[in-house]
Nucleic acid binder design. Sequence first.
DNA 1: TTTCATGCAAAGGTTTTGCACAGGC
DNA 2: GCCTGTGCAAAACCTTTGCATGAAA
Lengths: 151, 151
Amino acid sequence: MRGVIGEVEEKLRAHEYKMTPKREHVLCVLLENKDKHLSAEEVYNLVKKKVPDVGLATVYRTLELFSNFDIIQSMDFGDGRKRYEFSTEDKDGHRHHHLICVKCGKIIEMNEDLLEDLEERVTDTYDFTITDHELKIFGKCRECALKMKKP
Amino acid sequence: MRGVIGEVEEKLRAHEYKMTPKREHVLCVLLENKDKHLSAEEVYNLVKKKVPDVGLATVYRTLELFSNFDIIQSMDFGDGRKRYEFSTEDKDGHRHHHLICVKCGKIIEMNEDLLEDLEERVTDTYDFTITDHELKIFGKCRECALKMKKP
DNA sequence: TTTCATGCAAAGGTTTTGCACAGGC
DNA sequence: GCCTGTGCAAAACCTTTGCATGAAA
């Protein structure tokens, strides 16, 4: 885990930014919540627990900074706020994808890269140079699907 | 084209809403810009050209109304505002997908439904009942890819 | 007359920005 | 001392809501 912080520090330093204690706390919160998709305010509240004198603006600025260097990813599930997640990209730099339950809002991650052949077809058909893709699948998770059967 | 307006009118009436002149203008603007992905404000400005006394709130309310009845679709390309498009869904109710040029912002539509086998795999693996999906592919369009070669 | 639609202005929620101060090199 | 990072508050931005007016059935 320490190693990750070091890596990020290097990435930042390479662009003339420093790894400050506040930034480290933001990063830690994101690392401790790899499975979640935190909003800026959620990150803010979690950081505040450790460092009460942090400002919301700093959190926003830090998230933007991390996002610019692909340390974290910002995403949007259509609820009016951005959500952030520590980047666990594969070697191709692709995001992983999400199953979004329209009933309970649960978000399930798919780590597979299932779109390779699709990419090929797109590249051929549209003459489009793909750098990334994002797939959201909406539906009902098992629990909610079961609930629906017994109303 | 007239037929479309009639269809929408029916859909609305089925839910006890009326097709008013303002709503019709909003619909027309969306029909006339099927290929674009207009923001609420862009719709507002276009409607204003025809009916100067329209209010922004009405446009928002109308877009919300149409959206609820799947007459139009709202989507999000990550630029902080929702965009709207007249629904040209296929029979399965699936959205079509988008290629988003990260250089010029151009959005190219893919009307194909390329994800059928993927859906099967997801259903099997995650026990997830899919109702819809949304795929965004980021990259460079041909023009921008060419520009990049001669800097 | 009763109901729904609308314009305007205000409020709401999220994110960004301006500015002065603090802190490390 | 200089430069970056930071907190606070204000602003900006998109969207929603309240309310009184207006149109329609």
